[in-house]
């Protein structure tokens, strides 16, 4: 069996497990979607008729199996509260979450690599300490707290951006990207410390190796040794770390969306849970689990590309 086929089967099994856990949660937690839509002042008759319309009169286990059947054909069903296909809702909200994740990841890389190189240049010296202390203090603050600080300082205090303004990507793409910058910084700051620590120690352990001394003795400059020899080798373990960070970033973006009032997947997920919208919640969770699995898959492939000794097994 090919490597890819094996991975795909693994992915499907993981997603099945995730969907069963979500289903179990819905089974246990109280709440009637029709009553939530209609509110307390609705009569039982009104609630019953809406339940019937939404197909809620059948037991949840039956609805789950039906959902699973259609999910296998990539149809995630119809949202109860929005009466819209879940795929469509996710597609509408995905740009926000993807943009947030990609920009935060780029920011994390753009900042952590140069800083790590500076820190690793002279370990234990002042620059190293300054970099560590500054980044670690951000590491200690959770993204949603950082979000609130950033909003207070740059939004309300300095007025660099307007709080709560969201420009849809199909209206003004650069405006949309602009709205994503502050939230992305809030997500990226804690991750930078994490990435930095790994890259730094990875570079340091490579610097100790014999090939570095050999390269230097051949007359290569420090910079060339760093760029051509140390960095590529140091990158191998770092890729795994970035896979973990990417998954983290995805999770972080769901929370940060809330503080910045961005209508992304996180908002939709909360809405799905609080309105007990089973197909919507299942759909989003499967989607997120799938995305994380794909990130790890890509990391595996990158590994093998950078280090030919690692074969896709």
């Amino acid at each position: 069996m090919g490597y890819i086929a094996k991975k795909i089967i693994q992915l499907i099994l993981t997603l099945m497990l995730v969907s069963i856990i979500t289903f179990a949660a819905f089974w246990v937690v109280p709440g009637d979607p029709a009553r939530i839509i209609l509110g307390p002042n609705a009569t039982a008759e009104q609630v019953d008729s809406l339940s019937e319309e939404l197909g809620l009169d059948r037991p949840i286990s039956e609805r789950y199996l039906q959902w699973l059947g259609s999910a296998l054909t990539l149809n995630l069903g119809q949202s109860l509260s929005f009466k819209t296909p879940v795929n469509e809702l996710i597609a509408q909200k995905l740009p926000v979450t993807i943009a947030l994740s990609v920009i935060s990841l780029m920011l994390t890389m753009a900042v952590s690599f140069p800083l790590a190189m500076i820190a690793a240049r002279r370990p234990g010296k002042l620059t190293d300490h300054v970099v560590s202390v500054v980044t670690h203090s951000f590491f200690a603050v959770p993204p949603f707290v950082l979000s609130i600080f950033l909003t207070l300082i740059f939004g309300i205090g300095l007025k660099w951006f307007q709080v709560g303004v969201f420009i849809p990507h199909d209206r003004d793409f650069w405006g949309f990207i602009g709205c994503m910058i502050m939230p992305s910084i809030a997500i990226a700051l804690p991750k930078i410390a994490m990435a930095l620590k790994f890259i730094r120690s990875s570079i340091l352990s490579e610097k100790e190796k014999d090939y570095v001394r050999t390269a230097k003795s051949h007359g290569l400059s420090d910079a060339d040794v760093m760029r051509k020899h140390i960095l590529p080798n140091a990158l191998v373990p770092v890729i795994t770390v970035f896979a973990i960070i990417s998954a983290d970033i995805l999770g972080g973006s769901l929370i940060v969306e809330q503080v910045f009032g961005l209508p992304g997947i996180g908002r939709l997920l909360l809405q799905g849970i609080s309105s007990r919208d089973f197909p919507l919640t299942e759909g989003i969770i499967i989607y997120l689990a799938g995305m994380i699995a794909i990130v790890y898959f890509v990391a595996d492939i990158l590994h093998s590309l950078i280090d030919p000794r690692i074969r896709l097994k």
């Binding site: 920009i103 780029m106 920011l107 753009a110 900042v111 740059f154 660099w160 951006f161 307007q162 303004v165 420009i167 003004d172 650069w174 405006g175 990207i177 602009g178 709205c179 910058i181 502050m182 910084i185």
Partner: peptide
């Protein structure tokens, strides 16, 4: 260049047109 771009867009970016 990217870092500069980020700083600039964050200053001029998110305004209600």
């Amino acid at each position: 260049a990217m870092m500069i771009f980020f700083v600039l867009t964050s200053i001029f970016g998110c305004r209600n047109p």
